[in-house]
Design a protein around this nucleic acid. Structure first.
Lengths: 343, 343
DNA sequence: CTGAAAGCGCTAACAG
DNA sequence: CTGTTAGCGCTTTCAG
């Protein structure tokens, strides 16, 4: 079990190290018999290539770096989201022989830019997956791009298609949710906005207004409350909306944490869900299925998005450089017990 | 911003590369004036050492590898736990110039052992933090140890102190919870057991029995139901316990997910909490504070534990090799609205 | 306190 | 299809 090197394998197989390198890297210019001999030697010695040596010689590490907003800086509800992103990146890392480096960081701290530049120079990752809201921050995107490292941005909430982006159709699915609520007979559908730095979440507000219009309902600022994506903000906004007259019969929150906050507010006020009030959220976090009644929401394929992003980095698209391309993933409406006919 | 090397810095500072290496690595045998010159050159060139080269020359990567059970293989409730572990490891990585490699893997899949061996040979991490339940699996621990890589096990639920271990006092805090419930006047305190592979969780059952005894209550197998750490199992076990006669007045579940399941079962059966039933859990997941009423539970310092583990790996304890030592972290009782006086 | 030389284990041309 | 020869950018002896 002593650590064997490519030289040991070459000697045992009776070939040159270059040939060993070829079979390890799955280049095809190797005769079948030779390949078999080399593979036998590899198995016998329990050889695994030394990544540091590989990375040094090839001038880039077999590493994908996932950068996201540091959850420990605030609350912890985003844990599920982050785990899903990691899961997606890991899927391609596993199959392509890369490792995943995670780098949470606070997007508002001064010095993030330098921090990320230093990280890139040291670690020399093959590519970077940048999650929202960091993917919305101009200076950060510019700094990473300047290093020349392939970059894919996740859900940056851009108005137009751009290169190196994996987006969601937030505006469209939010409109769909509103149309669904309207089809249940709701006339006064309220909305709780998300954190302003989270542009993709901001698109949901536009979608809300689209949906109203498409359903022939008129918009009223009385039916909108401001939130910041947190459970507490949802609860506060919910209290506020539910004390207005006339009361909304449905509340659509820009994310699930806030929607659950609304449910709690309703419970406090003795308003039963879904009989007297329908509540809907967005994201389909784990909690959504565990509350009572289970929350109607929109599920987004975060793991698949991160997977696609990593794939763009690691394999590149045909005829394009790594990290190019634009993909839109669709959210799907999950109708559960928290919504129903208008009272 | 072209990537500069140690040679560039040496040339600019008018010293040899060895001297640059010395100041970068904070060795003290450098004259103050020389150090200043070198540091100026580093700043001017925006130099950051190439990790691959460093790792290759020093025969070990500046990497800590965190290995835990793959959550995507099952449900996702453990997300918060994993994020906390990552957070703790990252704290020491940041301050010590290491990076974090995460490696979720299914502890029951055949071939995990080989997978981990290959990972270690390729990545050559400075140390490994192994979370439960992998830290309970003999063959895995043995395989990692055999590679010679420093290892610290997290919460392996050992009966006795061992080296390279950061543990929790599950048995003691569980007894404490039972004593607390007894002090509220509860006589029939039920328990829902955890997943059998999770040894530390198993210790909670022993703690439950200790607590009964210490409170002068007699144990009855009628008051114990089997769970597997999942929300669904908690709900099922709760239904089962709540239909027994005489009904328990308090239910203590081996983790929070199951405790929340019990709350849902009670809601279904129209049993109000905490008036007719007290419910307590263990772990203090995010959800614990969000349910209504908020869940009484035990908070464990997961991030601090992971931090301690990484510190043992990276800095080593005085007079010992990296990864040695045994630490026990204490859980703290969080009394919230889900428990109260016995009916 | 500082420097010169010798690799670490691999990939990248370029030959054959 | 296979091998030879140079490095990649550091750390590590070992000398001064």
């Amino acid at each position: 079990m002593a650590n064997s090197t490519i030289t040991d394998v070459a000697r045992l197989a009776g070939v040159s190290i270059k040939t060993v390198s070829r079979v390890v890297n799955r280049e095809d210019a190797v005769r079948e018999a030779t390949r078999a001999r080399v593979e036998a030697a590899i198995a016998k010695l329990g050889y695994a290539p030394n990544q540091s040596a590989r990375d040094l010689a090839s001038r880039r590490a077999h590493l994908v770096c996932l950068i996201y907003d540091d959850p420990s800086a605030y609350e912890l509800p985003s844990a599920g989201y982050i785990i899903r992103l990691q899961e997606g990146v890991l899927r391609v890392c596993r199959s392509q022989g890369y490792e995943l480096l995670i780098h949470p960081c606070s997007y508002r701290r001064r010095g993030v830019t330098r921090e990320l530049e230093a990280l890139i120079r040291r670690a020399r990752p093959a590519g970077i997956v940048l999650a929202a809201p960091l993917s919305n921050t101009r200076s950060i995107v510019a700094a990473i791009t300047a290093t020349g490292t392939p970059l894919v941005r996740l859900a940056p909430g851009l108005k137009r298609a751009a290169d190196g982006v994996v987006a969601t159709n937030d505006r469209e699915f939010s409109a769909e949710m509103v149309r669904y609520l309207a089809s249940c007979g709701h006339q006064r559908i309220a909305f709780i906005t998300g954190h302003p730095d989270h542009k993709a979440v901001g698109m949901r507000y536009l979608g809300y207004r689209d949906g109203l219009q498409q359903s022939g309902l008129t918009f009223s600022s009385q039916l909108v409350a401001a939130g910041d994506n947190s459970f507490g903000a949802g609860e506060a906004a919910g209290m506020q909306l539910l004390e207005r007259e006339p009361r909304p019969t449905a509340i659509f929150a820009a994310n699930d944490d806030m929607a659950v906050g609304v449910m709690r507010a309703a419970l406090r006020l003795g308003i039963t869900i879904p009989d007297a009030l329908s509540v809907a959220g967005c994201d389909d976090i784990t909690l959504a299925e565990q509350v009572l009644p289970p929350l109607t929401t929109i599920r987004q394929p975060f793991a698949a998005m991160a997977e696609q992003a990593s794939l763009m980095l690691v394999k590149g698209m045909p005829d394009k450089q790594p990290g190019s391309g634009h993909f839109v993933f669709k959210g799907t409406l999950k109708i559960r017990g928290s919504t129903g006919p208008a009272p």
